[in-house]
């Protein structure tokens, strides 16, 4: 496959990514491909750098080494202005929703349109109502963020994220802390929006079953490395003990239940803390 065709295939390509926080290595020469038009999920135990990966892709932080190509542009090398330009083509849904608390739902969704376009007010209204209709919150347009439930906050934030019709949306733990109904709604929305708007979605999550049921491709990362990659079906059948432990949610295995400690018996009889 030629280089050009390869670029078109993947909206984001990460090569040889190294990133450390202080002494803690988060990524050590990791590589990822996120195919265009698909839902790709990044899964792994807490603290393995899933959210960090999204922040690296969106250029909020810079890697120690490696290339992060988004639509062929190397993100760490972009100037500040180029970075802001690029971000208009990507959206990110935060765990908290991150709505602007001093504006209503309507104004939150209208905000990126007002900032980035010179559309007349009537057209802004049409677009905002369409986006709110897509997430089912057209009736909640006049509510303030403090009046919304957790699931509604995320849906309102999703409407704001798709307001500028991005090419790609990154979801940071979209299901965390949601009740089953809100979770079902969000799952359906992610899948539907991906199809209807021909988006590319990157979902960071550790809700295995929910994520596996909507994702086209899964990455499982642990301790700086990709330990599993493939379709959800392949990974469910994986022989790797680490992948099995994660996919089946086993309490003990390669990731031990006990934090490393001295021998239990010695500790109990030793008498020192």
């Amino acid at each position: 496959m030629s280089d050009m065709a390869k670029q078109n295939d993947n909206i984001v390509e990460v090569r040889g990514l190294c990133f450390a926080r202080g002494d803690r290595v988060i990524f050590d020469n990791a590589s990822f491909d996120f195919p265009r038009g698909k839902i790709t999920a990044i899964m792994g135990p807490s603290g393995t750098g899933k959210t960090t990966l999204l922040r690296l892709i969106s250029g909020q932080i810079k890697p120690d080494a490696g290339r992060i190509l988004v639509n062929g542009q190397n993100v760490p090398e972009l100037t500040r202005n180029e970075l802001y330009e690029m971000r208009r083509t990507m959206g990110m849904l935060f765990q908290s929703g991150a709505l602007f608390t001093d504006r209503s739902v309507y104004e939150n969704v209208a905000f990126p349109l007002r900032e980035h376009t010179n559309l007349p007010e009537s057209m802004i209204r049409d677009i905002v109502l369409m986006k709110l209709q897509a997430v089912g919150l057209r009736g909640a347009r006049n509510m303030m963020p403090s009046e919304l439930s957790g699931g509604m906050t995320r849906r309102a934030a999703l409407a704001r994220t798709i307001a500028l019709d991005p090419d790609m949306i990154m979801y940071d733990e979209p299901f965390a802390g949601q009740d089953p109904i809100a979770m079902g709604v969000l799952m359906q929305l992610i899948k539907l929006l991906n199809q209807a708007l021909s988006l590319t979605s990157l979902v960071v999550s550790h809700d295995i079953h929910e994520t596996a049921s909507i994702a086209d491709k899964l990455y499982i990362i642990s301790e700086g490395d990709v330990i599993g990659e493939g379709t959800p079906k392949d990974l469910m059948k994986s022989e790797s003990p680490l992948v099995r432990q994660f996919m089946q949610g086993l309490p003990d295995g390669p990731v031990p239940f006990h934090y490393p400690a001295q021998d239990y018996e010695d500790d109990m009889l030793g008498g020192e803390s």
Binding site: M92, T101, E115
Partner: peptide, 11 residues
């Protein structure tokens, strides 16, 4: 995360 979300909206 309102500051980050502004950044992500390209503002």
């Amino acid at each position: 995360e309102q500051i980050t979300s502004l950044e992500m909206l390209g503002i």
